[in-house]
């Protein structure tokens, strides 16, 4: 099988490559953690592309239940059909709605499944999926059928690092923590997204970016996605590079900083610090 490797589009460190390939080879889920914007969601797309497999995405929300990934029994439709005298009502199978994992298990070829942001759901969510992810099968009570994976899917689970996951769940996964990219890696990521960006612009912008990230007390530090958005704006506006010059000792408010700082409190904090710096410097 083709392995997963860093590409021109997606910069993966060697440890991430090893973790992905271990998960693929041993057919165990890979849990990827890291702050928002470190490329967790995109990773699943890249893995699918590298392996040449279709991707099934399951985006978890605070109200998502584990059962929804397997199937749901649509009693409301059945009730309605019953009142309307629809003959379909007699077969309960007509009201079983497949979930993402069912789709993945029944697929004719191996697929990659992304379970995105598990930590959003209730604390019990991962526990409720333990057995299903382990055995890659589940039982449909209503129709008394077992749905077993034809091909064990590659499962990538992401978490934004907020909630602790149960031990039993963790023991079954491979784990990778995406560290926030260092300067050099970030240069490569920028290059991957904007191959035509002017070198000096990229350099100065990255200086500003890392300086902003260093401001103590920010509620939400800008991450890769904010940087990429900001760079796009800078390129569109075609600002002179001088506008971005940073000063080691002094914090300067960068142009179009709204793309970097999305939290109002952070904007205020930043403006105040820059103001103080200007007065002091």
């Amino acid at each position: 099988m083709a392995g997963f490797k860093s590409t021109e589009k997606y910069i993966a460190s060697r440890d991430l490559e090893v973790a992905v390939n271990a998960a693929v080879t041993l057919q165990r889920p890979l849990l990827v953690k890291g702050e928002p914007g470190t490329g967790k969601t995109v990773l699943a797309h890249e893995v699918a592309a590298a392996l040449g497999l279709p991707l099934i995405e399951w985006h978890v929300k605070s109200t998502t239940k584990a059962q929804q990934g397997l199937y749901e029994y649509d009693a409301v439709s059945r009730l309605r059909d019953g009142q309307l005298g629809d003959p379909r009502v007699h077969d309960i199978a007509n009201y079983i709605v497949r979930g993402k994992l069912w789709d993945a298990f029944e697929a004719d070829e191996q697929v990659v499944v992304l379970i995105d942001e598990v930590d959003k759901a209730d604390i019990e969510f991962p526990n409720d999926l333990l057995l299903e992810l382990d055995r890659m099968q589940f039982f449909v009570y209503e129709t008394r059928k077992t749905i077993a994976a034809k091909h064990r899917p590659v499962v990538i689970i992401t978490s934004n690092n907020e909630k602790e996951l149960p031990d039993a769940f963790l023991r079954r996964c491979f784990f990778h923590y995406i560290r926030f990219p260092d300067r050099e890696t970030m240069e490569r990521i920028v290059q991957a997204h904007y191959p035509d960006i002017r070198k000096d612009l990229a350099r100065e912008a990255l200086n500003v970016f890392f300086q902003v990230r260093d401001v103590p007390g920010l509620k939400k530090k800008p991450a890769t996605s904010e940087l990429l958005d900001w760079l796009k704006l800078l390129m569109v506006e075609d600002l002179p590079v001088e506008a971005l010059r940073t000063n080691e000792k002094q914090l300067v408010i960068p142009p179009l900083y709204g793309a970097l700082l999305k939290n109002e409190q952070d904007v205020h904090l930043f403006e105040r610090l820059a103001f103080l710096a200007r007065r002091g410097g």
Binding site: R14, A22, T25, L26, L31, F174, H176, Y177
Partner: peptide
Amino acid sequence: AAMKAGVAEYSIEDFYYLARATLVKDE
């Protein structure tokens, strides 16, 4: 099992990464 399957065949560094991905579940 991962060693047997040859996941970390190429370098000791890969072995380190593999061991880490397998044995550590909390950053």
